[in-house]
Design a protein around this nucleic acid. Structure first.
Length: 449
DNA sequence: GCATGATCATGC
DNA sequence: GCATGATCATGC
């Protein structure tokens, strides 16, 4: 077992693993199972036996070791492949702590991260460690995380541990962790057993971290320490938009000196302008990137209805055919995204004015029932073969339509009649997307007002 | 008049 | 070239 007197010595030794594969670092040949890559670093590279106790891995230095995958995207950018799962939350103890005595802080104040490049269809022993990095939380991040911790522990205290969801919080989440979904734990103030959960740093937070390591100037903040000391991230965002309520789009643009060009980029221009960082792409705003906020525009008609359903990315039918719901990108998207609806409404003269900002995360209960059922039904149809029948106007198919469950449906979204894909069953179909029903959207924004 | 299939416009 | 936000438009 290697001993490190100083943090610097540990960091320097860690860096010697960079650009090496796990195979090169692995002393004893063996097959690797899930979690096995971390074990190779612990046992072979650092030479200590695996512990699962409450203390940090490098106890004297107060440093916890984490081995975590990144992936290369098609457009050349890097992303965290998954959230960083930390220690399991003991529901019976954690809520009695303060933030600084909490198990989260005791164990994860300093994280020694080993990033490796995950590659599809590759033996995991051949993955390369691309970067080692000692992570400490910035003051701003820590203020947001303290607020997240408070949200999590308050829910536990209220006997609602079974209702915890990663979408409750901004950077620090409570992710399920267990041998299977039925690993249950007791909780205070409720007889209901709750799924075992661990603290986690969201995948979006990890992605922002990885990208900052590559290019530190990439992200721009819109909050300040002073604001974060008093308010949560959603509150700060809401406050910035409150003064705009009732204002016409053009007047907002004048007030904030924003140039509004074409329809498509209007909302991003408006949002970054109002936040005082004109011209910054929303995905490059640090808080939005880390918390995984995504913006959607909603236009309300004079009677309060919406004209159009809300579209989401194109469906990859091959993925839907092969992938179980819990591993699907649809699940991942709704489980991990906070949607920011920028709501405009039409006045008596059909002019658009800003009405409200609503932050929404698909409730866990809805994901587990309605969305899962929708996905499974679609998957069954894909397996038994999709029927595509020509009609007077285009082709009909038997995928779940807008009447299916009142929440979501599948509809075409393509460029022209030639923009098609081949289904797993062999049929050809116009490219399709996932849509949320407009009535569902109207209901949820009314509830969140 | 609405549901649903279709397509536009833009940005990367 | 293609994905995506947004919107059109036909036929029931």
């Amino acid at each position: 077992m290697k001993k490190f007197e100083t943090t610097e010595a540990l960091v320097n030794y860690s860096a010697t693993a960079e650009q090496k594969t796990f195979r090169e670092l692995c002393k004893n040949k063996r097959t690797v199972h899930k979690g096995g890559l971390g074990h190779i670093i612990e046992e072979s590279f650092f030479g200590y036996t695996i512990n699962s106790n409450k203390e940090a891995d490098f106890k004297e230095l107060g440093i916890e070791l984490k081995v975590t995958p990144i992936k290369l995207n098609k457009n050349g950018s890097l992303s965290a492949k998954e959230r960083l799962v930390l220690n399991i939350i003991n529901y019976m103890e954690e809520y009695q702590q303060t933030f600084y005595t909490s198990s989260f802080w005791q164990k994860n104040e300093k994280l020694l991260l080993f990033f490796y490049l995950w590659q599809d269809k590759t033996d995991s022993l051949d993955f390369t460690i691309t970067k080692t990095y000692l992570h400490t939380f910035s003051e701003e991040d820590l203020l947001i995380i303290q607020n997240d911790w408070k949200i999590i522990t308050t829910k536990i205290k209220n006997g609602e541990a079974h209702l915890l969801s990663e979408g409750d919080t901004s950077y620090l989440g409570a992710a399920t962790k267990g041998a299977n979904a039925s690993t249950l734990r007791e909780q205070p103030n409720s007889p209901i057993l709750a799924k075992q959960r661990a603290y986690s740093l969201k995948a979006s937070y990890m992605t922002a971290l990885v990208r900052t390591l590559v290019d530190p100037s990439q992200l721009t903040k819109f909050t300040t320490k002073d604001q974060l000391k008093r308010l949560s991230l959603p509150e700060i965002l809401q406050n910035k938009f409150k003064p705009l309520q009732g204002m016409k789009l053009e007047d907002i643009a004048t007030t904030y000196d924003i140039k509004l060009s074409n329809a498509k980029s209007r909302v991003p221009q408006l949002v970054s302008g109002v936040l005082g960082i004109k011209g910054t792409k929303l995905e490059n705003i640090e808080e939005f990137a880390k918390a995984n906020y995504r913006f959607k525009t909603i236009r309300l008609e004079q009677n309060g209805s919406i004209k159009e359903h809300m579209s989401f990315p194109q469906i990859d039918f091959n993925e839907w055919y092969h992938t179980p719901f819990e591993d699907s990108s649809l699940f991942e998207m709704f489980e991990a995204t906070t949607w920011v609806f920028v709501i405009f409404a039409k006045d008596e003269s059909e002019q658009l004015y800003f009405k409200d900002l609503v932050l929404w995360h698909m409730p866990k209960q809805l994901i587990d029932t309605t969305l899962r059922d929708f996905y499974d039904t679609t998957q069954q149809i894909l397996h038994s073969g999709v029927s595509v029948t020509p009609t007077k106007r285009g082709n009909r198919n038997n995928l779940p339509n807008a009447k299916f469950n009142g929440v979501c449906h599948i509809r075409p979204k393509a460029r022209d009649g030639k923009d098609t894909v081949t289904l797993p069953c062999g049929a050809t179909i116009t490219k399709q997307s996932f849509w949320l029903n407009k009535e569902f959207i109207v209901n949820l924004i009314n509830k969140n007002h």
